[in-house]
């Protein structure tokens, strides 16, 4: 790249082909610039102009599907359900009454909330040492192994991992064959909340670690050394220096793990054996089995409202963590730019 505008004398041997290629590139660039000059010049002159908005357009259109969809969901949630026509355009509060008073719904909702919170705490607590060691590892091999240990499961996807856990925790799975082998009797973890928490914890741990690493990386090591030299032991250094300074990462990790857990479908489906359904399973069956669009919409809107209320509350009280996109935010770095 550097030599492209280099007009100085060069060795004759390499000249011919290189020069012809360079001239072609220049000609193309000149052509483009000429074309640009022919366009109304106001388009490009200043930074405060339409071009920035034009750049945003593709992203805005893509997200527009979801935005329009949210509005549509809100409307659907007030329409009337009919077993034959599915939707009748008569406004009613029936779906919301159903959503708020139905016991089955409340049970599923509270279970989703409770288990998601458990998984969030587990993922952040156990993700922290992992992220810390990843950042502080001196050996390249160790750091890469730890990163690969996170990225391989992250890239393997929900279904395959749920399947793996099914083989391990299932009725005739690994755990039970080991238990019968040892003569300790069957371990009936399959179809329990414990099984769902184990599966979901393994699913979410990489997310927590990935959100924690950039935050821990910004901590100046000399602060830890200072604490140690002032007489703090490892645990205290961790408790009073490392953890408080990682707060943006802890916030981001908690939010990401919590919101993704709240919406999970596959783990409860495979490991819950129909008895530990989450909101996602519930909504899916209402929409696709009974085609009750209005009730499914009301439940979806309710899920969004509860999740975003909790997330906004965290943002409000703790700050946005490392989730922002632009540097203007107080705690920058969409995952830690340098």
């Amino acid at each position: 790249m550097a030599s492209e505008y280099d007009d100085g004398p060069r060795g004759d041997a390499s000249r011919g082909w290189d020069d012809r290629w360079l001239r072609l590139k220049w000609r193309v660039m000149d052509g483009v610039l000429e074309l640009k000059g022919a366009l109304p010049s106001g388009l490009f002159r200043s930074r405060r102009n339409g071009l920035g908005y034009a750049f945003l357009l593709p992203g805005v259109v893509l997200v527009g599907f979801l935005f329009a969809g949210m509005v549509l969901l809100l409307q659907y949630s007030f329409l009337t359900y009919d077993p034959y026509e599915f939707i009748i355009y008569e406004y009613t509060l029936e779906n919301w009454v159903e959503a708020l008073t139905n016991d089955a719904f409340r049970t599923v909702f509270l279970r989703t909330l409770k288990l998601s919170l458990v998984v969030t705490v587990l993922s952040v607590v156990f993700g922290f040492p992992y992220a810390y060691l990843t950042v502080r590892a001196e050996s390249e091999l160790l750091r890469k192994s730890l990163l690969a240990g996170v990225f391989v499961p992250f890239f393997t996807g929900t279904i395959v991992r749920a399947y793996g856990w099914l083989i391990i925790l299932g009725k005739r799975g690994l755990v039970n064959s080991v238990a019968t082998g040892l003569g300790t009797g069957r371990v009936d973890v399959f179809g329990t909340e414990t099984a769902v928490v184990i599966g979901l914890f393994q699913l979410m741990l990489p997310f927590a670690i990935l959100m924690l690493v950039p935050a821990i990386r910004t901590i100046d090591r000399s602060l830890e050394r200072a604490a140690v030299s002032l007489g703090a032991d490892r645990l205290r250094t961790f408790r009073y220096v490392v953890v408080p300074l990682s707060k943006p990462g802890i916030t981001a990790a908690s939010i990401v793990v919590f919101t993704i857990s709240m919406a999970n479908f596959a783990i409860p489906w495979f490991l819950g054996a129909g008895t530990v359904d989450f909101m996602a399973n519930f909504i899916h069956s209402i929409l696709l089995r009974s085609s009750n669009y209005p009730l499914a919409s009301a439940l979806s809107v309710a899920l969004v409202m509860v999740t975003s209320t909790i997330v906004l509350a965290v943002f409000y009280f703790v700050g946005a963590g490392t989730m922002g996109l632009t540097v203007e935010e107080d705690t920058i770095q969409g995952g830690g730019g340098q």
Binding site: F65, G69, A263, L325
Partner: peptide, 18 residues
């Protein structure tokens, strides 16, 4: 722009289905 991330995936599924 972060809406696709904040809207729970199952709700995105419902929305795009509709």
């Amino acid at each position: 722009l972060l809406l696709p991330f904040t809207v729970p995936l199952v709700v995105s599924g419902v929305i795009l289905f509709i």
